[in-house]
Design a protein around this nucleic acid. Structure first.
Length: 649
RNA sequence: GCCGGCAUAGCUCAGCUGGUAGAGCACGUGAUUUGUAAUCACGGGGUCGGGGGUUCGAAUCCCUCUGCCGGCACCA
């Protein structure tokens, strides 16, 4: 037998016979390690303990203390155990795939009957039973034919398809056994089922999911589970879910009287006074920013004849998602077909096309708070996050190819400032390159991708490449930010489009006196106001920055003899540009404080006779128990400063 | 669009196997003048999401439509 040398994390090396498994290595170190071991990293690869090591390697034996490896294994084994539990209870359920995902796993099943919440309880109980059996996990390498024969014999057509899909490149096909139950799997796995903590997982929900993610294929039933290393981990996760629910913008939207949605206008927002105050405050801010960064603002029609959409290519590529409006003959001389605009770009080109443009006019930055309507699939609608009617902070920059770089840099500067002002300090940039389905020649893609890459590199910003994710007409940069509870949102975008100016015949006169095609850059910082406000509300848990808060200050009387002074304070605050209101209702101060706190009013000024006599206010900030007595003039000055939008300070 | 669930007062929800609806909060009125997260009493309020069916009788059972929720697919 050949000898190999294994190097441990502490730098010591030991000799073993080739083919030794990590389990044997662990056993050679100590009995307790042999028991506690869960897997090993061999030359940087994560393997289970049965993996034979054939050559010199660096090895690290893992236990439950190695959180990353332990979580992966526990979730992975839990997925198998869940599938086994399901097949033990309902033997004719067909199994498919079950990967580890963030916080847990899922497994897709094919079964006539839908799984019910009661079924989940039953499956969970069976999983615990399987864990208690401490069934050993073993692995075997099968050849393709044997695997197919096995799955055909067991009436598992999905597994047959999976085996057939494994590329025939000499890679072994591995089977894992959890006791008598087996599954096709890459591994790695734990030593035995008892290593999955029985009190740290939970089955969360059942949902439909297409086989292989393809909407033309059968719909399977997916069961989601979450799993952790101990009960505390699970508890923390469940608490986190409750916290996330508390910041749900749909709930806060109601509690703060911001907006509502109703059946007659699915996916479209009824903005109430409070919500509209936030909206317009943000829009005013963006309007100032755009002016500062050299944009001109325009406004274009909502209902546009299909001829324009045919010319732009939308009729062909996007019709499914457009609201089509047919005007009937009684009202018009001829029946015409229009569509609500789903995007602003074709209209902006129309403005560009009026009159001759010179190279001196470029870059021309044309912005619109463009109201768009898209017929989103019903299942996609979600509060403010995915709607059918929305307004973008949209703009199109008409420029020469040479100007792309400078425009890109200036856009990133603008976007960084806006995000910082709105409380988002860091964001990621994704560079999406040519997709499979695209228009335009490879040479033109080479050129445009190159130009955009040069531009982004010149800014010095970090970015990741997302191959194949570009728009069909050109490459793009997407800007993603992370919110207060770690979720990523894609907001800003910067897209290079050499195609639309061509289709819609945009041109300018160059220095040489000849006509040239401009390049068009599509860009947005916030995306849609609706979605952005949804994100803002959740990010801040409704406690918006003072300048954006719809109700900034409530001045509340403690006794009705203080009412006159309350009104005086409110008037002074309003005159100083603060959104202030009086609460002189016949209620206790406790009641008022609670009500306005629930309503997320950032500042409450309480006024009793003491304050009236000394012309002070008692100031209390949202979320704080402390109050502070401040002179009236001082509070007006301070709050007025705080109410000033960040770009005007 | 697909799978599953849900739809009762403004909100959150109760209403068992069919016998024409109830609570808390909110709202209105009155009392109370109150010191930093819910004062008390009384009162008004529902075509039980829409339509159809079964039944002597439907919030309850069945069909259908719409919307919402959770996923999947989609999101140039």
């Amino acid at each position: 037998m050949a000898q190999i040398s294994l190097t441990f994390p502490d730098g010591n090396a030991k000799q073993f016979e080739a083919g030794v498994t990590p389990a044997e290595v662990a056993a050679g170190i100590s009995n307790s390690l042999a028991k506690k071991a869960i897997s090993a990293t061999v030359n940087g690869k994560h393997h289970d303990l049965q993996w034979p090591i054939e050559e010199d390697a660096a090895i690290a034996i893992h236990t439950m203390k190695d959180e990353a490896q332990a979580l992966e294994l526990v979730r992975h084994d839990a997925a198998h155990i869940m599938a086994r539990a399901v097949q033990e209870i309902w033997p004719d359920v067909k199994v498919t795939i079950g990967p580890v995902i963030e916080n847990g796993w899922y497994y897709d099943f094919d079964r006539e009957e839908p799984f019910t919440p009661e079924d989940l309880g039953q499956i969970e109980a069976r999983m615990k039973e399987i864990i208690n059996r401490r069934d050993p996990v073993t692995t075997e390498v099968w050849d393709r034919e044997r695997a197919i024969r096995y799955y055909e014999a067991n009436n598992e057509p999905y597994k047959v398809e999976l085996v057939n899909a494994i590329p025939d490149d000499g890679q072994p096909i591995r089977m894992y056994w959890h006791g008598h139950w087996q599954d096709l799997c890459r591994g790695p796995h734990l030593q035995h089922t008892g290593q999955v903590p029985a009190d740290a997982f939970k089955l969360m929900k059942v949902a439909g999911a297409y086989w292989r993610g393809d909407s033309n294929r059968p719909m399977l039933q997916r069961i989601y589970g979450v799993g952790f290393l101990n009960r505390d981990g699970l508890k923390r996760y469940l608490t986190m879910l409750e916290e996330a629910e508390k910041r749900d913008h749909r709930r806060l939207g109601r509690e703060m009287a911001l907006f509502h949605l109703q059946e007659e206008a699915p996916g479209q927002v009824f903005w109430h006074p409070n919500g509209w105050t936030i909206y317009t405050t943000l829009q005013d801010y963006m309007r100032r920013q755009q002016a500062r960064w050299g944009y001109v603002e325009v406004n274009t029609p909502q209902v546009v004849d299909r001829k324009l959409w045919e010319a732009s290519g939308h009729w062909d590529k996007y019709q499914e998602n457009m609201f089509i409006v047919e005007v009937d003959e009684e009202h018009a001389r001829e029946k015409t077909i229009n569509a609500l605009k789903p995007m602003n770009c074709p209209c902006h080109v129309q403005i560009f096309n009026v009159g001759l443009k010179s190279y001196r006019d470029l870059p021309l930055r044309m912005a619109e708070f463009g109201s768009c309507n898209r017929y989103e699939p019903s299942g996609a609608l979600h509060g403010l996050m995915r709607v059918r009617g929305f307004t973008q902070d949209d703009a199109h920059i008409f420029c020469t190819e040479d100007q792309i770089e400078a425009e890109c840099k200036s856009f990133i500067d603008m976007l960084s400032e806006v995000y910082a002002h709105l409380g988002f300090d860091d964001f990621k940039i994704k560079f999406s390159t040519r997709p499979e389905k695209r228009i335009g020649s490879d040479e033109s893609w080479d050129y445009v991708e190159g130009a955009l890459e040069t531009a982004i590199r010149a800014t010095g910003a970090d970015f990741e490449i997302d191959p194949g994710e570009g728009a069909f007409y050109g490459p793009k940069l997407d800007f993603k930010l992370t919110d207060a509870i770690g979720r990523e949102w894609q907001l800003g975008t910067f897209q290079v489009d050499p195609n639309l100016p061509e289709r819609l015949g945009a041109s300018y006169i160059g220095e040489d006196g000849a006509k040239h095609r401009p390049t068009m850059l599509h860009r947005a910082v916030l995306g849609s106001f609706e979605r952005f406000l949804g994100i803002m509300i959740e990010h801040h848990e409704g406690k918006l920055p003072f300048w954006l808060a719809p109700r900034q200050v409530v001045v509340a009387s403690i006794v009705s003899d203080a009412d006159d002074f309350v009104h005086e304070v409110v008037d002074k605050l309003k005159a100083a540009g603060v959104r202030a209101e009086a609460d002189t209702r016949n209620e206790k101060i406790n009641y008022k404080v609670r009500e306005h706190s629930v309503g997320k009013v950032p500042v409450i000024l309480a006024i009793g006779m003491k304050e009236v006599e000394e012309r002070n206010v008692s100031l209390r900030r949202l979320g704080e128990k402390q109050t502070r007595v401040v002179a009236l003039d001082e509070v007006v000055t301070d709050l007025a400063a705080e109410a000033t939008p960040p770009d005007l300070r």
